[in-house]
Design a protein around this nucleic acid. Structure first.
Length: 578
DNA sequence: GTAGGGTTAG
């Protein structure tokens, strides 16, 4: 009697606090045999990932006096489902060391985690373990292995395991299909797709997503229309395809017409607008979404951070912390947030983030470390930045560039150059950002020869200097007093010089009190910018410095007049609204 | 088994 009552009660266990209360009751009433149901229910109903749930459940599991592979498997699956792949594998190992034999549940989850992490080593040893424990006859485990080898690009192994499956289900077929898609063999994938006896919505989604990823929206769209039953994922795949092509209008049409939007639909659209720099449309969508989950917050925070709105990014982050205890930031959220604070030059935020990470047990990863490196380099805490740099699991183009960029800003040319040499030795390819850092290091240290050499090196790496790179070169030459050379370089540019390039020449002309180049540079700046008052003021100062008071006054007068006209224009517009 | 979020410049 009490059993069924408790069972009913357990079904209602939606949040951790309730689970804890019920658990206390179980213990008091000596119903420990119901603990595994509690574990199962709690994990099933926890929609948003929460580390507290993991800690709590693990404590219950370790208190079991019976071997319960099923409950352990539930926790392994919970971690894998919430994309905590590293933790999935380490819990699996912990479970093994605890003497719990693997369940098919646990094995399939840990295999999928290994696949998503590109972790062949653990994947292989789990395969071996599955063979030893006799679980390889289980279709779920076999299918999990097909999925693992498919993801890791070992299509031959995948095919071998697949052929051994006695009773293949649709999931087994789909896993193999996934393998051919992953290896880029679209023709073979299409043959497998046509051979699947009972295609389900995932079979269709897989083949459609492969066309969408290739940018072949014609095929993707016609298959989408042909499929008998569409799931929200099918719509999201199509929308994602259009987003990747930059076709936001078409994406929006499908988004607006789809019958059941889910959070993926919203995040896909928001990130599409992010990439095009359309913060307004992204925000519009974000505001109108009713139940926002963590990923939607992440997408919107990233949108602000990537589009030069760091204050908005931080504001939304604080809002996220306050809004809902279910939505907890993780390393993904924090990397955007750190990038925003770096843009604001707020180095104290780094210390806050680091303590937040330890307090909440967040797994720090290379991307988050990279954003912290950038923050500390810009803030001048080089010791901390170098330490973090050495902590990286894998140094890549972005992390090297962040370091070099920081050296560049702080005029550390020697360090920048040795980092550059190091990355070349390690065969890590530099990109345009790397050279921005290197060139600005030379510029800030007055190393003209070195700068030229660097600039010319770019083509060895198939990199075309951008207008910004020219801007730094102009700045460097200008500071060295070589205005003529700087002007020649601007004239040689294959693209239209921007206001930054001319501004650099103007600034240098100011340092040298050179009217001739000052006038040229300023006239271009005025053409390119809507508010040229700063440039004009600069030119006026150049006139003053060489004693041409009359010209200086003329420029200032012209500025005043423009300002007045602008002010009048504004008040006229405002007035007309009333 | 399918769909969504993060790091370096401007």
């Amino acid at each position: 009697m009490l059993d069924s009552k408790l069972r009913f009660f357990l079904q209602k266990c939606l949040v951790l606090e309730q689970a804890k209360q019920v658990h206390a009751q179980l213990v008091v009433n000596r119903h420990k045999h119901l603990e595994s149901i509690l574990v199962h229910q709690t994990l099933q109903f926890t929609k948003e990932f929460s580390r507290n749930v993991v800690i709590y459940v693990k404590r219950i599991l370790k208190g079991f006096n019976i071997v319960d592979s099923f409950s352990w498997g539930c926790l392994v699956r919970f971690l894998s489902q919430h994309r905590k792949f590293k933790e999935t594998v380490s819990l699996y190992i912990e479970m093994h060391n605890f003497g719990i034999p693997p369940s098919s549940h646990a094995i399939t989850s840990v295999l999928s985690a290994c696949g998503k992490m590109d972790n062949m080593v653990d994947g292989n040893s789990i395969h071996a373990q599955a063979l030893k424990s006799g679980l390889c006859g289980c279709v779920y485990v076999q299918t999990g292995l097909v999925g693992l080898y498919s993801r890791l690009g070992c299509i031959e192994m995948a095919k071998k395991v697949f052929d051994d499956i006695a009773k293949k289900n649709t999931v087994s077929w789909n896993s193999l299909l996934h393998g051919y898609l992953e290896s880029g063999d679209l023709d073979e994938a299409r043959r497998v797709f046509d051979k699947i006896p009972e295609k389900d919505v995932v079979s269709w989604n897989l083949i459609i997503s492969s066309y969408a990823k290739k940018g072949d929206m014609g095929n993707a769209c016609s298959l989408f229309q042909a499929m008998p039953l569409k799931s929200p994922a099918s719509w999201n795949i199509l929308i994602g395809g259009y987003v990747n092509c930059g076709e936001m209008k078409l994406a929006r049409t499908y988004f607006d017409t789809m019958p059941q939007k889910n959070s993926v639909s919203w995040t896909t659209m928001i990130s599409g607008y992010t990439k095009l720099g359309d913060v307004h449309s992204a925000k519009e969508l974000f505001i109108h979404m009713s139940k926002k989950n963590k990923l939607v917050y992440d997408a919107m925070i990233a949108c602000y951070a990537q589009n030069g709105k760091p204050k908005d990014a931080l504001k939304l982050f604080y809002q996220m912390l306050e809004s809902n205890s279910d939505v907890q930031p993780d390393e993904m959220t924090l990397s955007s947030v750190v990038s925003a604070s770096s843009q604001l030059g707020d180095i104290s935020f780094g210390t806050w983030v680091e303590s937040y990470i330890t307090q909440h047990g967040i797994q720090i990863d290379d991307l988050l470390i990279t954003s912290l490196i950038d923050l500390y380099m810009k803030g001048g805490d080089f010791a901390k930045a170098f330490k973090l740099f050495n902590d990286l699991n894998k140094k890549d183009t972005v992390s090297y560039s962040a370091m070099i960029m920081g050296c560049g800003i702080n005029g550390m040319a020697t360090e920048a150059n040795s980092l550059f040499r190091e990355m070349i030795e390690k065969k890590i390819p530099p990109n345009l950002v790397t050279f921005t850092g290197l060139l600005s290091a030379c510029s800030h240290s007055g190393l003209v020869q070195e700068g030229y050499k660097c600039f010319k090196t770019m083509k060895d790496y198939n990199l075309e200097p951008s207008a910004d790179h020219y801007g730094i070169m102009v700045d460097m030459l200008g500071r060295a007093g070589r205005l003529e050379e700087a002007y020649e370089l601007i004239k040689s540019m294959p693209m239209q010089p921007n206001a930054g390039v001319w501004g650099a020449l103007l600034l240098a002309s100011g340092l040298q009190n050179n009217v001739e180049f000052g006038e040229i540079a300023c006239s271009h700046c005025v053409e390119l910018e809507t508010d040229p008052s700063g440039y004009l003021l600069h030119l006026a100062n150049i006139y003053t410095s060489v004693g041409r008071w009359e010209d200086a006054r003329n420029v200032r007068d012209a500025m005043e007049e423009k300002k007045l006209r602008k002010a009048l224009g504004c008040s006229w517009v405002e007035g007309s609204n009333h």
